[in-house]
């Protein structure tokens, strides 16, 4: 690596944990509402994997429930895109491609983390992530190269989500994502620049998500479930 290049920005373990937790939550919002019953099952699986990954990392950082339910929204460290609302199925699947490609790089790095627990979570996650990437890629291809309507929705989703990808700077991400977009016959945008209003919208979405997610636990502080 040349001395003048910037070190790749690797997300903190906390950012990964929170990212997985929130994306998992977004996917659970689809269960019972997916376009096919098979997809209800599939999204459930992915949500469970991501939840498991979040739990593994949160338990390493402290008490998983304390961190998930009793931390305020502004203390969460996730990349903004992980809190982004589902929108329609095209937006959800495109977001999933972006997040899956991010996690691909992240988990690979974390298999070498100094803590054994984190290495263990990462080793399992690498396999789960391979399946998630396969699934989200399958859908983005079918939506990009399906009907005019699906393509229109996917292109709109791309326009809305792309600004949020400025925050993702792990090496390898852009190449992976480009591969998927090209196969989906979708034009690949130039690198995104940071968009504060898009990020603010996600912070607001995160507050709403957590307000619902944390509501019951916070109503009974100290209780066991």
């Amino acid at each position: 690596m040349s001395p003048t290049s910037e070190p790749a920005a690797l997300p903190s373990v906390e950012a990964v944990a929170d990212g997985c937790l929130l994306v998992s939550h977004r996917l659970t919002e689809w269960v019972g509402n997916a376009p096919t019953m098979e997809e209800d099952v599939a999204l459930g699986n992915i949500a469970l994997d991501l939840l498991g990954q979040a739990r593994g990392l949160l338990s390493f950082l402290g008490d998983e429930d304390q961190l998930a339910y009793f931390r305020d929204a502004d203390k969460f460290a996730n990349p903004a895109i992980c809190a982004s609302p589902n929108g329609d199925f095209a937006r959800t699947m495109l977001r999933q491609v972006f997040v899956d490609c991010w996690l691909e790089q992240v988990w690979s790095t974390l298999t070498e983390h100094e803590a054994e627990v984190v290495r263990g979570v990462a080793a399992k996650a690498v396999k789960e992530n391979a399946y998630h990437r396969r699934h989200s890629r399958s859908w983005v291809l079918r939506l990009g190269d399906g009907t005019e309507e699906s393509r229109r929705r996917l292109l709109l989703a791309l326009e809305e989500l792309w600004p949020l990808t400025a925050e993702i700077t792990v090496p390898g991400w852009r190449e992976s994502v480009t591969g998927v977009l090209v196969a989906a016959t979708v034009p690949v945008p130039t690198a995104a620049s940071v968009d504060d209003s898009a990020a603010a919208a996600c912070a607001s979405a995160r507050r709403e998500l957590l307000a619902e997610m944390q509501s019951l636990a916070r109503a009974h502080p100290g209780a066991s479930w």
Binding site: T28, E29, R55, D65, A68, Y69, A217, H220, W225
Partner: peptide, 8 residues
């Protein structure tokens, strides 16, 4: 699902 009071 979205309000389950513990991750488990």
């Amino acid at each position: 699902l979205t309000r389950a009071p513990s991750l488990r």
